[in-house]
Design a protein around this nucleic acid. Structure first.
Lengths: 105, 105
DNA sequence: GTTGATATATAGCAGCGCCACATATATACT
DNA sequence: AGTATATATGTGGCGCTGCTATATATCAAC
């Protein structure tokens, strides 16, 4: 997995709605047909980091007959950061393509 | 700049012909219109790493009236590694696109 | 003769993601 | 009742990658 992109992916997945850690991991693995997978153990520290940076906000949710879960959602700062990361991602891919002829198709 | 991609870029640039460190840095900066730039100081350690891993091979070249330069070229292992990295890069971009709707165009 | 471009080198550091391990609960199988 | 599996979160330690700062040396230009 491409280093440095994990954060961007997490933010993107939280864009639509709040999700909890385990859900994110499963989502990434299934949606990408196991091409991307990052280890659950990496995920939680990453979420803490994002929370510490103010990009996401976590909230404990407890339901009867279920384990407690921590749902994360994007903060305004998180949305802004995601937009910037999307932009620089596009710039990067374009530049890489030009430099090396690496195709994306 | 996307972490983990520097190595791939260097290998790709050495694919055609041998180049020296400073040339690589300038090439990356100019060809990408300064969108990608990595600092000269990062470059040399990276080249040593690639050499230690057997992916490139360095050779000192001395010419009268010029500073000595160290030209690096791809080894067979380097070519193989580049091919693999290109492949997984494509897989990654496709998966990312599917997961997040990130465009590359 | 000093500045700027060319060219290489090293020490130290922070972030990112991995691995191994740990904990706890609900469900399903046997 | 016992056990395995899936769900869900947490932690300590580690290695790689790339950055910053700094150093050295030569050539061209002014």
């Amino acid at each position: 997995m491409q280093k440095g992109s994990a954060e961007m992916i997490l933010l993107a997945l939280l864009e639509g709605r709040a999700r909890h850690g385990y859900e994110l991991a499963k989502l990434i693995e299934s949606q990408s047909e196991s091409h991307l997978q990052f280890h659950v153990a990496s995920l939680y520290p990453m979420l803490y980091r994002l929370e510490r940076k103010g990009l996401v906000e976590g909230k404990w949710v407890e339901k009867a007959g279920e384990r407690r879960k921590r749902y994360y959602k994007l903060t305004p700062a998180g949305k802004k950061s995601l937009a910037e990361q999307r932009k620089s991602w596009r710039v990067f891919v374009r530049a890489l393509n030009q430099l090396t002829g690496f195709s994306h198709a």
